[in-house]
Design a protein around this nucleic acid. Sequence first.
DNA 1: GCATGAAAGGTTATAACATAACATTACCAG
DNA 2: CTGGTAATGTTATGTTATAACCTTTCATGC
Lengths: 181, 181
Amino acid sequence: MSQPDDTPNAADCTAFSSDHNHHQCIDQALNSARLLCQQHNVRFTPVRQRVLELIWQSHKPLGAYQILEQLGAEGFNSAPPTVYRALEFLLEQRLAHRIASLNAYIGCSHPQQPHQGYFLICRECGSAQELPSELLAQQLRQFAKQQGFAIETETVELSGLCPGCQASLSTPVTQTPEPTA
Amino acid sequence: MSQPDDTPNAADCTAFSSDHNHHQCIDQALNSARLLCQQHNVRFTPVRQRVLELIWQSHKPLGAYQILEQLGAEGFNSAPPTVYRALEFLLEQRLAHRIASLNAYIGCSHPQQPHQGYFLICRECGSAQELPSELLAQQLRQFAKQQGFAIETETVELSGLCPGCQASLSTPVTQTPEPTA
DNA sequence: GCATGAAAGGTTATAACATAACATTACCAG
DNA sequence: CTGGTAATGTTATGTTATAACCTTTCATGC
């Protein structure tokens, strides 16, 4: 409660460009998470932290059993309930989202603000970008309101091709090399 | 090809009101389907037809194994591939949609027009209403376009309470009785 | 320190959802 | 009526998720 909510957002980087400092994503996500768990007075245990790290390792949504495999390799207990409990916790604390269309999980880029995640998911590279959009939220509410429907949770997952993969697929050879730093 | 696309749409009824002639939904859906299969020169076999009927029996999305159970009870072959093949066919022909957030399937209310399904799903009564919305489609494209993202498939599933269940839950006793015909 | 109770984690089993692979049957075109 | 393709039958298994019950951890009050 004593902390201002001005922590940098972990994924103000964009999932679809490879030229961002991804360590920052992870570090900021973990810092945000620690802070948020303190504020909520809940325990950020090793397995919960590790699962959060794992789903932040890339911007690709991760299946529960992929996470489980990693955990097992690192000496954690590796029965399904372990990972599903950790994921349940992260979802409750709004530190992660579930991608229904993929049965997969991904770190939440804006855990501080209450929001629903809107996702752009590239079918080619597998990356998913979460985008907050107050405008889209309004439009969806409007859409539901016309039917007298009261929205509680929103699943908005748009699949297709990210800018990078559109380019690679249309010009598979002559693409400009990307900056490596 | 020789048929005009003016078949009545099976779900111009609304899933959230109980005072519609639901037989019409089913009949129209089946007629549309027969027509569409003729047009596409594909076979509308008994099991395909029965699965379509089953997912039209109510406006609640149905799980594959629920369908399977029904089929089994009726003497159809009842191994999983049977129902998954039928569903695959119906999805291909755009006669059904998959609801990712529920792992369930529902009849498509506007099979004639190419479209993505936008769904309002009531967590209380389980009904799902599909709504076409060119406006929402535009807004989603716009949203994606800002990121240079090319949408191929859209998963838009809004869960909450339908008008009827909002009323029942807030005034559990004093609700007005519904017309029975 | 230590009792204690709630939260977290361990363990085993199983439920729920979905597909692979290969054999058989149905159906139509020639 | 035959040959090929689409559909279905059959068996097995893969993948995702949860139930149920037991043990451990850890903050708290004594």
